Amino acid sequence: MKKISILLSLIIVMSFASCSSVGNLNPMSLLTGNNWVLSSLMGKALDPAKFLNGLPSLGFLDGGGLTGFTGCNNFNGNFSLDGAKINLDPGDMTKKACEGSGENDFLGALSQVSNFKVAKNKLTLLDGAKELLSFVPQN
């Protein structure tokens, strides 16, 4: 019985230790180092017909730089973090005309983003609890 008690105590201690190490991760490190490719929009699977020129993507750079592709145009802007709160500014954008409504849908959702989470190689951009966009790392 004593062995079970010691084992349970050890498991509890290890659980708390692993939780605190996850809590100590720098939010910036969760975002940078990947090129994130769009995998869902407004909580729904993507319609490839809306993105004939390729899927939108985001790149977060050290120092607050934001780069990306809207499915039509490239952009270079900025982002800022305050814990799990995030502000995205696509900034300068090329001005190609493309078919499909994907770019407008993507930019509309991007403008509503107020917070984010990263879990299991998935970046989810949210407005409160509402999922707006989700991304996976580009292979």
Rank of each mutant, 00 (worst) to 15 (best):
L61H: 05
V37F: 06
A45K: 12
G71C: 10
A45F: 00
G71E: 10
K85V: 01
N73G: 10
P48F: 10
G63E: 08
G43S: 09
N78D: 10
T32Q: 06
K50H: 12
S40A: 12
F69M: 07
N73S: 09
G64F: 02
T32E: 04
G71S: 11
G64I: 03
D82F: 08
G64W: 04
L41G: 05
W36M: 04
M42R: 13
N87D: 13
G43K: 09
N73L: 07
G59V: 05
G54N: 13
D92P: 00
L38R: 03
F69R: 03
F69A: 03
G33L: 05
P48N: 09
L41E: 06
F51L: 09
D47Q: 10
L88H: 01
G83K: 14
M42P: 00
M93S: 14
T70C: 07
S40R: 01
A49H: 07
T70D: 07
N76G: 15
L52W: 00
D92R: 15
G33T: 07
V37Y: 09
C72L: 10
L46K: 03
D89L: 06
I86E: 05
G54C: 13
N35S: 13
G68Y: 02
K85I: 00
L31K: 01
I86P: 03
N53Q: 15
G63P: 06
K44N: 13
D47S: 15
N53P: 03
T70Y: 02
N34I: 00
N35L: 01
A45N: 14
G59H: 01
N35P: 00
A45S: 09
S80C: 07
N34V: 02
S57F: 11
G54F: 13
D89H: 07
P56C: 04
